[in-house]
């Protein structure tokens, strides 16, 4: 993919969508990183506090946060009406997160 010219960036939307133009999967990696950071940090905090952590609960919470975050990302668009997070990438995130949310709630 060809990156857009920096001079074409006029709004905050343009700036936020800019990485998508350079790398289509940029925000998929971004959400995956956020998911991993929240999940692991919550797990290790639990482990320190209560000796035994619950990894499924930690990643269940991280999945809920990731779904909310990616929903907001689908709403942000640039002047050419390109969303920050494309529909097919959002579907991947949703499908992945539903598995964790389902296991987490069922386990409770």
């Amino acid at each position: 993919m060809v990156c857009e010219l920096i001079s074409n960036i006029e709004t905050i939307g343009d700036l936020l969508v800019y990485p998508t133009g350079c790398n289509y999967y940029f925000y998929l990696y971004f959400v995956a990183t956020i998911w991993a950071i929240i999940g692991f940090s919550s797990y290790f905090v639990d482990k320190e506090k209560y000796i035994k952590g619950d990894i499924i609960s930690s990643f269940g919470i991280a999945s809920v946060v990731s779904v909310f975050l990616s929903t907001i990302m689908t709403l942000i668009k640039n002047q050419q009406n390109i969303p920050m997070l494309q529909q097919d990438l959002f579907m991947y995130i949703l499908g992945f997160c539903i598995v964790f949310i389902g296991i987490w709630i069922f386990k409770k």
């Binding site: 809920v64 779904v67 929903t71 689908t74 709403l75 668009k77 009406n81 390109i82 969303p83 494309q86 529909q87 959002f90 579907m91 949703l94 539903i98 949310i101 389902g102 709630i105 069922f106 409770k108």
Partner: peptide, 30 residues
Amino acid sequence: SRFGLVALIVFGLFSFIVIVQSDNSAVQPL
């Protein structure tokens, strides 16, 4: 009841996404 609860929460999550996207006129609604 666990199966029912999982179904309700997934349904709620789907509804949340649909409502938020339609209210904010998303470019590529789900």
